[in-house]
């Protein structure tokens, strides 16, 4: 039986501290802290042509976004970093920290309210205000997973190496959402060492988009990472992962199936977008996220299809 205090008093690793510092200040985290001392491999990015890449867990998001080799082979990663947080945060936040960060739920972050992630017995957002909550209700906690990098890495079938395990998939890292008290399934004290990316095809196109209310610097309402190969006008590879909609990053298997081998054209974008929301279980206030999810699936399929066909789309708004 976990009590509220021992969850909040657990030992925590400190990396860039962009998440932890705020929780320390508000008293959401009050256990001992251990500063991560990165080993050399935790600090480097290795890219081996044809074999994949390995990104150390202590590499900052800024460094990942600036790495030209990664950008070339894994453009979806660079696209994600670009839209994530702010330059100050990206400068110190690490990849490992991003994957292991705690929930952004406003109930979790409010020091006066108990919740599953603080040792409480239920999720106050269910009967409360869950405007930012999940649209795929997979478990007792209805806060979406906060890691955008996880969304992108899942699209690339990345695996995690820790000080105790190798080949940990993102599915295994995050589980299925059935345990509402956790944001990840690392054991106490376990440290992420690096993230391994399998090779990506040179013909593939990848992107990342998020729906927000302002122009920039906002946690996504819904986000999507996509990898696409179009061959002979048909989708040969479709990999779609969404964030902001479930307690874990979610592969959109239905949408992938609907598009795979189909013609890369408007009707199929629409069909795939509809398929993306199949099986959704939105909360009363979060149903709008499904429309955003549909919109984002349509958007990235269109982008990828047009880019693959050599059509250059200028999405910027003329001023």
């Amino acid at each position: 039986m976990t009590s509220r205090s021992n969850i909040m008093d657990a030992v925590e690793w400190r990396a860039g501290s962009t998440d932890l510092s705020e929780r320390r200040r508000t008293g959401i985290s009050r256990g001992p802290i251990t500063d991560l001392i990165p080993t050399p491999e935790m600090r480097e990015i290795l890219v081996v042509a044809g074999e994949g890449a390995r990104i150390g867990s202590s590499v900052t998001l800024e460094a990942i976004g600036a790495d030209k080799r990664l950008a070339k082979t894994y453009p979806g990663i660079a696209a994600t970093v670009k839209l994530l947080a702010t330059p100050q945060i990206r400068h110190v936040a690490t990849l490992g920290g991003n994957l292991a960060q705690r929930s952004r739920c406003w109930y979790f972050r409010n020091p006066n309210i108990s919740c599953l992630k603080k040792g409480g017995s239920d999720c106050p957002a269910r009967a409360g205000n869950h405007y930012y909550g999940v649209a795929f209700d997979l478990g007792p906690c209805i806060a979406p997973h906060p890691s955008s990098m996880a969304t992108a890495l899942l699209a690339y079938d990345a695996t995690i190496r820790t000080d105790r395990r190798d080949g940990l998939t993102l599915d295994a890292l995050y589980g299925d959402g059935s345990n509402g008290s956790l944001d990840h399934r690392l054991e106490p004290g376990e440290v992420i060492i690096s993230i391994d990316l399998p090779p990506a095809a040179t013909s593939e196109f990848a992107t990342y988009e998020r729906a927000i209310s302002r122009a920039q610097a906002e946690w996504p309402l819904v986000e999507i990472a996509a990898r696409i190969i179009v061959k002979d006008a048909r989708f040969q590879l479709v990999r779609l992962v969404a964030g902001g909609i479930a307690p874990v990053p979610l592969r959109l298997v239905g949408a992938e199936k609907a598009a795979k081998d189909a013609l890369a054209e408007t009707d199929i974008f629409t069909i795939a977008a509809k398929a993306a929301i199949e099986g959704a279980k939105p909360m009363p206030m979060s149903a709008y996220k499904l429309k955003l999810l549909e919109g984002l699936v349509y958007d990235v399929l269109e982008q990828c299809a047009e880019a693959s066909a050599g059509v250059w789309i200028d999405k910027s708004i003329p001023s």
Partner: peptide, 20 residues
Amino acid sequence: VDPTTGEVLTAGLDDYRIPG
């Protein structure tokens, strides 16, 4: 606000969104 307790939920600048 939380409709049960009356706690203000948008009590940080992440959640209370002023123009950027």
